[in-house]
Amino acid sequence: MDTFKILGFIFVAAALCLILKGYKTEYAFALAVCSALAVLTLILKNIAFPLKLIQEKIAESGIDGSYFKVAVKALGIGYITSFVAEACRDAGQNSLALKAELTGKCAIFILSVPLILSILETALGFTK
């Protein structure tokens, strides 16, 4: 499903949400979340193949794969967190959206701690 089909689909979903918002706002919210889900699933399908390609290339080339793994995990966390934060904003809950983003940031920070430590060790190694 190429980009123009996805964009067209998003446009139709937005129009449907507008219709439903007039009568029942909770359905408009459910519709918005569901269309976001559909788009994200489609995008995931497109992303899966190149990601596998890069991982295989890095595995072959012998570079330490852990750094790339952390980056891919951070990407996944960011992906889900932004989806949830935007859904909360759709529902009008700005404070909840900020909490969701805060959770995502903390998760990514925890993920990156080993990376920071290894960089510090190499840096300290130079000073000795």
Partner: peptide, 9 residues
């Protein structure tokens, strides 16, 4: 899904 939810609404 989208059209199901719109229809239910």
């Amino acid at each position: 899904f989208i059209f199901k939810i719109a229809a239910i609404g």
